[in-house]
């Protein structure tokens, strides 16, 4: 089970600005199911671009990318794939300001056949998991940075994704709050057997993963 590849990438290329910027310049990468992988590299090396490709937020110019059995270059509407397979955590929490914490967590569940009650119940369970059940009715602005990021984790888990993608999840936090978020993510990976791919600048953070991948100029360093 554990040696099955959930992510399979061959010679993946992606350019911006009509090809003047080569963000990804031939990436080859395999990630096993249940693995915790960190991606590290200097600014502008293509880490976020790679993560966005895996999460089907963007499409490749060239090469093959297969995630959890789906050939992403062949698909037209990727929203179903994103909804069911992927949980995203960004550097900035990106919570919706006029919704309370609980409602923010329910956002990914719309259109997946839940009624309001089921959505709230599931969101509450996830908030318990990130230990924020007593802040469920607060607005995001009333929360600390670390708490907001924990809400973002709960939201990422809303549809039971098989892969969680985190783009510098601790990037905007102090070290204490950052440690707490990392502990949550590590626990999630260990207990739920979720595949976790995390982009970071920080060598110490990266070292928590099973494996660290270095990206430089749109290529993986070996």
């Amino acid at each position: 089970m554990n040696n099955e590849n959930i992510v399979e990438i061959n010679n993946l290329k992606k350019g911006f600005d009509k090809g003047r910027i080569k963000a990804l310049n031939g990436i080859d990468l395999q990630i096993r199911k249940g693995e915790f992988v960190s991606i590290i590299g200097p600014s502008g090396s293509g880490k976020s671009t790679l993560l966005n490709m895996i999460g089907a937020l963007d499409t490749a110019d060239e090469g093959l990318i297969r995630v959890d059995g789906n050939d992403l270059s062949q698909k037209n509407d990727l929203s179903d794939f994103r909804s069911k397979k992927i949980g995203f955590i960004f550097q900035l929490h990106n919570l919706i300001p006029n919704l309370n914490v609980l409602e923010n967590v329910t956002i990914p569940m719309y259109g997946n056949g839940y009624n309001s009650k089921q959505m709230s119940a599931r969101a509450m369970k996830l908030l318990k998991y990130v230990k924020l059940q007593d802040k469920a009715t607060r607005k995001p602005t009333e929360l600390s940075g670390g708490e907001r990021q924990r809400v973002a984790i709960a939201r990422a888990l809303a549809n039971k994704p098989s892969i969680v993608l985190a783009d510098e999840p601790t990037g905007s936090l102090d070290s204490k709050n950052g440690q707490m978020i990392l502990k949550r993510l590590k626990e999630l990976h260990e207990k739920e057997n979720v595949t976790l791919i995390m982009v970071t600048h920080d060598m110490n953070v990266a070292s928590m993963a099973d494996r660290t991948i270095k990206v430089l100029d749109g290529k993986i360093q070996t």
Partner: peptide
């Protein structure tokens, strides 16, 4: 704009 990006990232369809 950013919020709409988030909605797309969590799998909301364009139609929604």
């Amino acid at each position: 704009t950013r919020e709409i990006g988030v909605l797309k990232s969590v799998g909301w369809k364009s139609r929604r």
